[in-house]
Design a protein around this nucleic acid. Structure first.
Length: 510
RNA sequence: GGCCCGUUCGUCUAUCGGUUAGGACAAGCGGUUUUCAUCCGCUAAAGAGGGGUUCGACUCCCCUACGGGCUACCA
């Protein structure tokens, strides 16, 4: 069997949506498992919808999630160029080949004429198709005399080239996910293959490129399923049926609520990103949030996406990219669309954060800590991460919600004050502060023991004074294990914090 | 409207003719943590409906319903 070659072929019409990332991911997993090649091809045959920056965005997004390409616009390769606009010159000869073999024809209809035809067919209860029947009453090289066609062509009149589908024939192909799919040509129309602007349409370019780039498997979204029969016909007309790639049409990612496929608007509405990276629309300057900027780990996004429509037979859900490559199988992809669950995405992030190396996390949030004005260093930050990461969803939560690791609190939780802050507790804390000042570098167990002993001596239950201590140290009612934190922050520092808290809270409550 | 694809707990899913239909997220309850944002335990929760095929159907076939996709000189 020839070497597996797959491609991810997005159009640079805007930011790549997570459904696209998943498609790329499945292609990648499939190829890498079989030692095949992964190709990035940019399908920009529609100049009208071209969005500047979109191609770079696509490349950067896929790089972020860890998908590497063997060939593509940004890395080159033996089948370059990989951008369809750069391949423009080669498509015409294939259209001509079809013209010559009688599998395609010129059409001169204006868009008004096309609309009129469709309206008329609709009104008559028929499918509004440009097909074997309706084409005979349109303006094309099948209905016009040969010299008239030549005249129009020579005169430079605009035209398109359409595929000439047989009137009634069964087209069938085997889809790796869906099994046999059968469509009648009578339900298909003579799609435009070559546009009047000199560019091929998706259908032609896609088939020609897959063929010339020796693609063996086409793994793409389900929205392409209806046009797959057309592509199969093209392979036949070109005489390439022996090397036609195998198809696998992926189920779509649907909205979390209601119905329909996931769109940009759903993210805005429900408050979660639908794009891997933040995107600023170049024409409106509108900003759409991205997973990366929201603080998601790339591996968590990959994991979450992989499990949307794919699952192993066991109950395992947490996988690294490498593990996914080993375990992936197209047969295990489900056929039905999957509603996206933003809550579970967060859960995946937490799981991957737990798995991640503490020093690595620390190095990634170090700059943000400095920007916040925290006095810290890598050793200390790594210890902070170790202590708190199990309690957060995102690494940036450590920066944003755990300021007390780095600075003396200035605000104190009112509820805790009301509940636990009293003269007894204050007196106790004062004593405890004095006590720990004389200690140095004790471990958390010693700190805890001495705390409890002191409380017992004063006739206080630990419960009555632990919360006040926590409040004095952090300003909050919750947080990591008290004495481990105390130990990490340091006894001298904590003693100061206690003193500060006693002063501040007295002032505040007077 | 037409064509195509699909349908197991609220959600993502396991099951490839014989199971007490399993797991995870979310939910509820309880417990740890004398903090909670973590962790642990428990509970509730599903085969769309109707026909077949079969000793036996969630699993295979048909119909209906529902959902989705496509129906451009967009991809």
């Amino acid at each position: 069997m020839s070497k597996v070659r797959v491609r991810f072929a997005p159009s640079p019409t805007g930011p790549l949506h997570i459904g696209g990332v998943r498609t790329a991911l499945f292609n990648y997993l499939f190829a890498k498992q079989l030692g095949g090649d992964m190709i990035l091809r940019i399908e920009d045959t529609d100049q009208a919808r071209f969005v500047p920056g979109a191609e770079d965005y696509i490349v950067e997004s896929l790089k972020w999630v860890g998908i590497q390409f063997d060939e593509g616009t940004h890395v080159g390769g033996p089948f370059a160029p990989y951008r369809q606009s750069d391949r423009k010159a080669m498509y015409r000869q294939y259209a001509d080949q079809l013209l010559a073999s009688g599998h395609a024809y010129y059409a001169f209809d204006t868009s008004e004429e096309l609309d009129a035809m469709r309206e008329k067919l609709k009104a008559g209860g028929m499918a509004p198709q440009y097909d074997a029947v309706s084409r005979m009453s349109m303006i094309n090289s099948l209905t016009l005399p040969e010299d008239e066609v030549k005249r129009r062509l020579d005169a430079g009149e605009p035209y398109v080239i359409r595929i000439k589908l047989p009137r009634k024939e069964e087209v069938r192909f085997h889809d790796l996910i869906r099994g046999w799919v059968i469509v009648q040509t009578s339900a298909m129309d003579d799609k435009v293959l070559f546009k009047s602007d000199g560019m091929p349409t998706y259908h032609l370019a896609n088939v020609v490129d897959d063929y010339t780039m020796k693609i063996t498997h086409v793994i793409r979204g389900e929205e392409w399923l209806p046009s797959a029969p057309l592509h199969v016909m093209l392979y036949q007309f070109f005489g390439w049926q022996d090397v036609m790639p195998k198809f696998a049409h992926l189920p779509l990612i649907l909205k979390p609520d209601g119905n329909g496929k996931l769109s940009k608007r759903d993210g805005d509405r429900l408050g979660f990103p639908v794009f891997p990276l933040e995107w600023k629309d170049p024409s409106t300057n509108e900003i759409s949030s991205g997973y990366r900027e929201k603080g998601y780990e790339a591996e968590a996004v990959v994991n979450m996406l992989a499990l949307l429509g794919w699952h192993t037979s066991d109950n395992r859900e947490i996988f690294s990219l490498e593990e996914l490559i080993k375990l992936f199988s197209i047969e295990k992809i489900s056929k039905n669309g999957a509603k996206f669950d933003p809550e579970k995405a967060k859960w995946f992030n937490h799981q991957h954060l737990m798995l991640k190396d503490n020093a690595q996390i620390a190095s990634e949030i170090f700059e943000a800590c400095q920007a916040k004005g925290y006095q810290t260093n890598m050793d200390y930050l790594t210890n902070v991460v170790a202590l708190i990461k199990e309690k957060v969803t995102f690494s940036h939560d450590i920066v944003e919600r755990c300021a007390y690791f780095f600075q003396t609190p200035t605000q104190f939780d009112e509820q805790v004050i009301a509940k636990k802050w009293n003269s007894q507790a204050v007196a106790f804390l004062q004593d405890y502060a004095n006590m720990i000042t004389s200690m140095e570098n004790e471990d958390s167990t010693t700190l805890e023991t001495s705390f409890k002993t002191l409380a017992a001596d004063k006739g206080l239950s630990p419960g009555a004074v632990m919360q006040p201590l926590r409040l004095a140290l952090t300003g909050e009612g919750g947080g990591p294990p008290l004495f481990e934190m105390l130990c990490l922050i340091g006894v001298a520092n904590c003693a100061d914090r206690i003193t500060h808290a006693i002063k501040t809270i007295q002032v505040a409550t007077q």
